[in-house]
Design a protein around this nucleic acid. Structure first.
Lengths: 311, 311
DNA sequence: CCTGGCATG
DNA sequence: CATGGCAGG
């Protein structure tokens, strides 16, 4: 047994380096708690540049555990928002364990679930639709990626909708190599689809593209989600003929984030990251009405995002 | 990834056999929820048979996780009860993680902690004293037993106080063999002490001695805590010159339990077990004033027990 | 059904 | 600092 006083050993990994968020470490000694710089999402615009009315509303939310999120009344927010399609990431829930509240939701008669094969309660995505897609597929067609329950693709008459939970590069970037492979393969998959029909990609892409997309770019160059490799991967996706819908509409908007670590009260200080996106085939830009960040909605360490589109 | 409907496989172990508690399985079809048979602990008697006043009050409680128990205000109950010595089992807490609420408690300036070497948050016992023992030791002097943080022995001028968390035989009795070794070695340890000075043993002895000591003796003959081997182990301890203080005073008292599984609302139905004891050297029987079961006290799946003694 | 630890984020 | 799964009870 252990007894008596014992010196505490330094932990190897800790929370130290990765995802560094604190604005005042030891350098600055400013005692002022400095007021947070918030982002007020403007009212929804529901017409396209050409004056057409949006007829497709899509919401995407990384719920960080669907069961906990349901208990925190995430579904009440969904009913209020009332999108045509709801995409969820990090459901962390086997189909048999889904809460009845969501499986029985009459607003969405067409529901699709996809979770990890190996690790229970890891990853997982879902898509809930008011109208039935003409076809639904799971994964990106590569064994090595498709075990983890990260992608659902729904085909609609005029476009594909892909929702994804992109693999996190991990503490200490232990999975950065895998992420690079993923980025390449996922990009190839999307390009393939895009040749058939324009597509909307939504979800937690686990990357902040540019410095404007997170509060502390300087301190996070070696953090998962902001490494040069991951940023480059996103850049290459855009170069392949896709558009970051939020940045398209609000090119200079800072402090607009979709994720805040639970640690260090980051959300109340708006120390966050923009990790969740609606990425569109370039040909859909004229159909784009608005790309919203619902940063008031609580229930996860991510907030939902919503797209208004003419299809 | 996993998707679509999938048949649920039968689980090998489940909650089925072990610790069978339900009074009406398929046999009885009585729909009546039948009122629970409670046990009302009589008022404390604080004089011995010879009319001497108790001057030592000892409380023992298996807290099932000290940190959770502190959050559930276990310490408020302790301050109310105000024993001279408080013995705790299943603290499940490394010394460095102890809540300040208990480490700083001024009523008990002498505190002793003992936890498992290997498995963090497993087992663990503690003793808090108003007056300083002349000597405190840990374990029972056998390597194979002393890694798990199960025993603290305090020497006082006229007696030893031993608190113990006896190893559970486990689901499917996987650890029954080990338990038999433990029982023999622990009994030898106690006999050894008893030759020096009379002793009080308290704690979770993880056995219901007789049929009267649990609600459902019939269904639990193969359950950990009520196997013939474990009951026999307790019997041999008594034969070695010790007395079960509660049973000494209340030989016929049924429905007096100190543990109720969290499952199946057992506590509200008083479907329980008497697993916690004050066992005394026979020579201390004249010093015994009362042996109480505080079954109103909440905060764990065990309730506390209290001993009044003349020392 | 609860605990505390763990991996993961 | 949250999640879910796990061993242990």
């Amino acid at each position: 047994m252990k007894r008596g006083k014992k010196a505490e050993e330094a932990t190897a990994e800790g929370d130290g380096e990765a995802n560094s968020e604190s604005t005042n470490k030891k350098a600055k000694k400013s005692k002022e708690p400095e007021a947070p710089i918030l982002y007020e999402d403007p009212p929804d615009k529901t017409t396209s540049k050409d004056g057409l009315d949006a007829n497709m509303k899509i919401t995407s939310w990384n719920v960080d555990g669907l069961r906990a999120w349901v208990k925190k009344n995430g579904l009440d927010w969904v009913r209020e928002e009332d999108p045509d399609v709801l995409c969820l990431q990090e459901t962390k829930c086997a189909e048999k364990d889904l809460p009845a509240d969501i499986t029985s939701m009459p607003e969405y008669p067409h529901k699709y679930w996809c979770v990890s094969d190996d690790k229970e309660g890891y990853s997982g995505v879902a898509m809930l639709c008011k109208t039935e897609p003409t076809k639904v597929t799971y994964g990106i067609g590569k064994e090595e990626h498709d075990k983890e329950g990260r992608v659902i693709t729904a085909e609609f008459p005029t476009f594909y909708l892909v929702t994804a939970y992109v693999p996190n590069a991990g503490r200490g970037l232990v999975r950065l190599d895998y992420r690079k492979t993923w980025d390449a393969d996922f990009r190839a998959y999307l390009s393939e689809l895009d040749m058939q029909k324009p597509l909307v990609l939504c979800g937690d892409l686990n990357v902040a593209h540019r410095e404007i997309d997170l509060k502390n770019p300087k301190g996070n160059k070696k953090s998962a989600g902001f490494t040069p490799e991951e940023r480059e991967g996103f850049g290459q996706l855009l170069e392949a003929g896709f558009v970051d819908s939020f940045r398209e509409l609000y090119p200079e908007q800072a402090n607009a984030y979709t994720f805040w670590t639970y640690m260090m009260n980051s959300r109340s200080k708006n120390v966050g990251w923009r990790l969740d996106y609606f990425v569109l085939s370039s040909s859909l830009v004229p159909a784009l009405c608005d790309s919203k960040i619902r940063n008031k909605a609580m229930g996860s360490d991510h907030c939902p995002i919503t797209l208004h589109l003419v299809v």
